[in-house]
Simulated scan of single mutants.
Amino acid sequence: MRNISTRLLIACAAIGVAGGVLFTAHAWIGGLTVNTIPFLYGITMGLYFLPGALAQALFHRGGVALLTASLSGLVASPFQPIGFLAFLIGIVIGLIQELPFLIARYRVWKTWLFLVSGLVSGLLTMGAAFGILGGQNYNLGGTILVVASFFISPVIFTGIALWLARALDQAGVARGLRADERRGDGRQVDD
């Protein structure tokens, strides 16, 4: 991340703190539902992908997903049952979200690439959930339901992040913070 302004850092921190509050609430509520209603836990698991995707969609800059997701995990760490592991999970989520945009060299910010990022995140989340929750111990219908909920959840929350980013952009939150806007370099942006 080159040319990081204080304003960009503050905006990412604000999104990160809000994400940390959501992470904490989800951790405590999710702790109650993971063993009783794993489908509900799975469908809300994508919440962890919201802050990073929001920062990427709003600012169109490399590294903001990693920064924002890491800050969310750091803010949530003292209040979560898993402690500092929340910060490490935030880092991993941010890295996963950065990967498709890094491959595109941070030149493409189209909706489809965000959805690819959500699908990749969903595949990884689905695989982890299957192993951690013991998906092989459910009947076929239960396994499909749990696996599908963990797969689709990051995609859903990436879509919510895109919607929020559009609303915040219309309110002028990102004005002057997008790298492609500041340089006028003609990078591909939203459809």
Rank of each mutant, 00 (worst) to 15 (best):
M1R: 12
R2W: 09
N3I: 01
T6Y: 10
L9M: 13
L9A: 12
I10C: 02
A11T: 15
A11Y: 08
A14I: 11
A14Y: 04
G16L: 00
V17F: 04
G20I: 01
G20V: 04
F23Y: 11
W28P: 06
W28G: 08
T33M: 08
N35E: 15
T36D: 13
Y41A: 12
I43R: 13
I43N: 12
T44H: 12
L47I: 14
L47Q: 06
Y48C: 03
L50C: 06
G52E: 03
A57Y: 01
R61G: 05
R61W: 02
G63A: 12
V64K: 03
A65Y: 06
L66S: 09
L67T: 07
T68C: 01
S70Q: 04
S70Y: 00
L71Y: 00
S72Q: 03
L74C: 13
L74S: 08
A76P: 12
A76Q: 06
P81A: 10
I82W: 15
I82H: 14
G83K: 13
G83A: 06
F84K: 14
L85R: 13
F87M: 10
L88I: 07
G90L: 03
I91R: 01
I93F: 07
G94N: 05
L95F: 03
Q97C: 02
Q97R: 11
Q97S: 03
E98A: 01
E98M: 03
L99P: 04
F101V: 05
L102Q: 09
I103R: 08
A104K: 15
Y106Q: 10
R107A: 00
V108D: 13
W109R: 00
T111D: 08
L113T: 06
F114A: 08
L115M: 13
V116S: 07
V116G: 09
G118D: 04
G118I: 01
G122H: 02
T125Q: 12
A128D: 09
A129R: 00
G134P: 00
G135H: 10
Q136S: 14
N137E: 14
Y138R: 03
L140I: 01
G141A: 11
I144K: 11
S149F: 04
I152C: 12
S153K: 12
S153L: 11
P154T: 00
V155C: 14
I156L: 15
F157L: 03
T158A: 01
T158M: 10
T158D: 07
I160N: 05
A161L: 07
L164P: 09
A165R: 02
A167Q: 05
L168I: 11
A171C: 04
A174T: 10
A174P: 09
L177A: 15
L177D: 11
R182D: 02
R183L: 15
D185Y: 15
R187H: 08
R187D: 08
D191I: 15
